[in-house]
Structures are given as C-alpha cells and as structure tokens.
C-alpha cells in the first residue's frame, strides 16, 4: 500500500515519467560528437539525481517501518522483563520482611558496617597492642584506649591494653579505625540491631576481662 502511494505521488509530480524517458535516452548514448555527448552526460547526472530522490523517499519509508518494528521489539523486551519478575516473584524478590524474619531467613551482607568488635581467640587473647592509632584516626572520639604499665618476667616494663572503650553513641561507622589498625586487631561486624533505651548503655568495653595480648611467635619459633 505504501509503495502504491509513493508510486502515484511520483507519477503525479511527473518525476517518474521524466525518469523513464531519461532512462530510454541513456540506453541510446553512443560515442559520437562531443557536444551531444556532453548534453547526454548532463542528462545522465539528472537521472542519477532522480534516482537519488527516489532512493531517499524509499529510504525514509523504510526507516519509518524500521522504527515501528524496532519500537515494538524494544517495548516487548521491557514487557518480557517485567513479566518474568511478575511470574517468578517468589524467587527474585529481594524484600526482607524484617521484623517477621529476624530470627529465621534474614540475610545481611558481610560488607555491612554494623559495630566495631575486638575479636578474641579461644585462649582469651586479642591482638591489640594499645598503640592508640585507632583512637587518633577516629574523627569523633568514639574510641578511648586506656593502657597500663606492667612488668614482664624478665623485669622489662611494658605498656598493655587495660580498657578498649567504644562509644557506640557517637560512632558514625566510618571504618577509619579498622583502616588505621596496624595489627588488624579490630573489625566490623554486620550486626545492626544496636538500639537501646538508655544511651549510657551504648558505651562498651571491647576487651574481655582477663584477656591479654596474643604473643607473636618469636624468630626462633618461626624458623623451627
């Protein structure tokens, strides 16, 4: 139908007639006198121009149809995506129904910054050397390292951790203390249910009572 429309419009403007008559002349071009040839060559250019016009119209029509088809294809892609979600909602849904599933299926990513913890091993040993780098790195003074002097067996005086005080009420969970720690003594847990009714309860002592620094293996031990 489109082609018929284009054909008739071309016919109406006389372009098609001109085109066909010129086409006939084009076939009659023979090597002859230069003058006539040059005229005919000019006519040849005209033919090419006419052809271009026709091509342009065909091309725009082609582009129109292509646009419509492309539009439908791309819309169908979107529709299929949402239909897939609609059908497989039980699998693809990522909503946590939080208060209902807090004890069952809840999953919080490991990378979530919850609270700072000082891990202890089974011998009640931690890795904190009380260097206070975390305290200095903390932008809002949430960390307070209280150290004490002790005397070791061989009579040396040594500074060890007494209290690792963590003020959760002012912590912004910025992770800078963990970055600053040279011993990797502290880390962040993904626990998030941290609210309490009294803000004085938000001050924690992270090192357990009676815990001590985990001794590093000496050079001799490492070699053996």
């Amino acid at each position: 139908m489109f082609c018929i429309g284009i054909y008739s419009s071309l016919k109406k403007t006389g372009e098609l007639n001109l085109y066909s008559s010129l086409q006939e002349e084009k076939l009659n071009i023979k090597p002859g006198s230069n003058g006539t040839n040059s005229v005919k060559l000019g006519k040849c250019h005209l033919i090419l121009a006419q052809k271009k016009i026709k091509n342009k119209q065909m091309k725009s029509l082609f582009n129109y149809i292509k646009e419509v088809i492309y539009a439908f294809v791309s819309l169908a892609k979107g529709l299929l995506l949402t239909l897939r979600y609609f059908i497989t909602i039980k699998k693809v849904n990522i909503t946590e129904e939080y208060p209902n599933n807090r004890t069952t299926t809840i999953s919080v990513k490991e990378r979530f910054y919850g609270e700072v913890v000082l891990p202890h091993n089974e011998n009640n040993e931690h890795k904190c050397t009380a260097c206070t780098l975390c305290q200095m790195a903390c932008p809002n003074n949430s960390i307070q390292i209280i150290s004490k002097q002790i005397e070791t067996e061989d009579g040396k005086k040594k500074r060890v951790l007494d209290k690792w005080v963590y003020h959760l009420d002012s912590c912004t969970f910025c992770y800078q203390c963990i970055d600053a720690c040279p011993q990797d003594a502290i880390e962040m847990k993904n626990s998030f249910e941290l609210s309490v009714y009294d803000r004085t309860k938000l001050i924690y002592q992270l090192n357990r009572p009676g815990s001590k620094l985990k001794e590093k293996p000496t050079v001799k031990e490492q070699q053996s």
Binding site: T82, Y85, F86, I89, V92, N93, T95, E97
Partner: peptide, 10 residues
C-alpha cells in the same frame, strides 16, 4: 499487587 510484583516487591 501487580505493581509490587513487577518491581520486585510484595
């Protein structure tokens, strides 16, 4: 419901 399901909600 359709809106929820298509946007990965309940």
């Amino acid at each position: 419901k359709v809106a929820g399901f298509m946007q990965l909600r309940w």
